[in-house]
């Protein structure tokens, strides 16, 4: 079974919102209709987005770290939003695991948005149907596009390649390897939703140097210069070579 998903590298994301704008650009222009905005240049702008980039601060000044955190539907393997939908408009595709909403069936009851713990479903205030990330289902299979472009718009847009796309059920896919080898994790595991999307944590490379490693044990007096040769009868450093 295939489960397409995104893997988002928080170590690399710079919070530029390129994925947000490219997502909106692609999805508002598609067959499924526009994603409505209200008062985009007014005082209280609002609109429907599939993807948001948020910023969190970890720690307390001055020891803080800024985490830019892109968030879209996680295409849960056990999606709580699907069984609650009374019409069957929300469904999970068996062939690739993408969770979708059929805009022609949705009655806009909002129940599925209550049943998603991550707050990634947004009601389109003008079409009055529930919308969410489709993993760009209308481009990833489009054979008229070159192979390299059959990826979600956000993945193509990311200037730092913080977003990986692939099949998380294939153990050798790039995303699976990244999850396995770089500490990929899921959000709110406490609800058992088994999100398909994973996040890679912030990672820093540390070397640990002990104090005694800062001093050469064979030069305790810290004297530089040619060192006394051992006597021919004494054992050498490696016990093999001798003068």
């Amino acid at each position: 079974m295939t489960q397409l998903a995104l893997v988002i590298d928080l170590n690399v994301c710079v919070g530029c919102h390129a994925c947000v704008t490219s997502c909106k650009e692609w999805n508002t222009s598609g067959d499924a209709g526009y994603m409505s905005d209200d008062r985009p240049y007014g005082e209280d702008p609002t609109g429907c987005f599939f993807n948001r980039v948020q910023t969190f601060e970890v720690g307390e000044y001055p020891r803080t770290e800024t985490v830019h955190f892109p968030k879209s539907c996680l295409h849960c393997e056990d999606p709580p939003c699907v069984p609650v939908c009374p019409t069957g408009a929300s469904y999970k595709r068996p062939e690739d695991g993408i969770v979708l909403v059929d805009y022609d069936k949705c009655i806009g009851c909002k129940y599925c948005s209550w049943a998603c713990p991550y707050g990634v479903r947004e009601l389109d205030e003008h079409q009055k149907v529930m919308k969410k990330c489709t993993l760009c289902v209308d481009r990833i299979y489009d054979t008229s596009l070159p192979e390299s472009e059959r990826k979600p718009a956000c993945v193509l847009a990311c200037p730092t390649s913080a977003r990986l796309f692939g099949d998380v059920h294939d153990p050798d896919s790039r995303v699976s390897v990244a999850i396995r080898e770089e500490g990929g994790y899921t959000l709110m595991p406490e609800w058992g939703t088994h999100p398909a999307n994973h996040y890679l944590p912030r990672r820093k490379t540390h070397i640990s140097v002990h104090v005694d490693e800062l001093e050469r044990y064979d030069n305790p007096l810290k004297k530089e210069g040619e060192r006394p040769r051992p006597d021919i009868s004494e054992p050498s450093l490696d016990d093999v070579t001798s003068w």
Partner: peptide, 13 residues
């Protein structure tokens, strides 16, 4: 952990 930005200035659903 504190949030510094929710990613947009206006409201949303």
């Amino acid at each position: 952990i504190s949030q510094r930005s929710q990613g947009f200035m206006g409201g949303s659903f």
